[in-house]
């Protein structure tokens, strides 16, 4: 698994769009200064969280759509199995834990007559100790819920592994 690591980026999705489209390349950042979700909604991304984007291989737009919908299940599955918790998926693409948002996924594609480029960005609140006042009732982190530090690297690798597997299954 090839991972490009950055300390601080505006957003991993923004950065990855400027790179050569190398399938399955992962861009990982310790913090994002302008993390965003759908409709450019702000994603709180301080140090401690897990923020990464994956360059997806050339696929049809229908397969990418299916993969996007399955990505929330992948994130929920990894959290559930690894930490023995009961995450809740809010369709299409948010993962909640104890009624608070813990992860968000945003897939972006560039499409002409076919798909030129597609990336999947995932933000997972792992080791975030506190949230700003406006978010503390709607967002949480694994550290807050479990009371322990999470190994971001292991969680990242597991999520990417499952996403790869899912895309393979979809496109077969």
């Amino acid at each position: 698994m090839k991972i490009k690591r950055y300390k601080r980026v505006s957003s991993t999705n923004t950065l990855v769009k400027k790179l050569k489209p190398e399938p399955w390349l992962v861009v990982l950042a310790q913090e994002q200064t302008a993390g965003y979700g759908r409709k450019k909604n702000y994603w709180f991304s301080p140090k401690g969280g897990l923020y990464f984007s994956i360059i997806l291989p050339k696929s049809t737009i229908d397969d990418l759509q299916t993969l996007t919908l399955l990505a929330a299940f992948v994130v929920a599955k990894v959290i559930k199995e690894r930490f023995k918790v009961e995450p809740f998926i809010k369709l299409p693409n948010d993962v909640y834990l104890n009624q608070k948002k813990i992860a968000g996924i945003l897939t972006e594609t560039v499409v002409g007559s076919d798909v030129k480029f597609s990336i999947m960005g995932i933000g997972l609140n792992t080791n975030i100790d506190t949230f700003p006042k406006e978010l503390e009732n709607i967002a949480t982190s694994l550290k807050i819920e479990l009371g322990k530090r999470i190994d971001n690297e292991k969680v990242l690798k597991e999520i990417v592994k499952y996403i790869k597997k899912q895309l393979k299954t979809i496109s077969e």
Partner: peptide, 10 residues
């Protein structure tokens, strides 16, 4: 925008 997928149409 299609569900959580943002598509830049070129």
């Amino acid at each position: 925008s299609a569900m959580k997928m943002e598509n830049e149409i070129i």
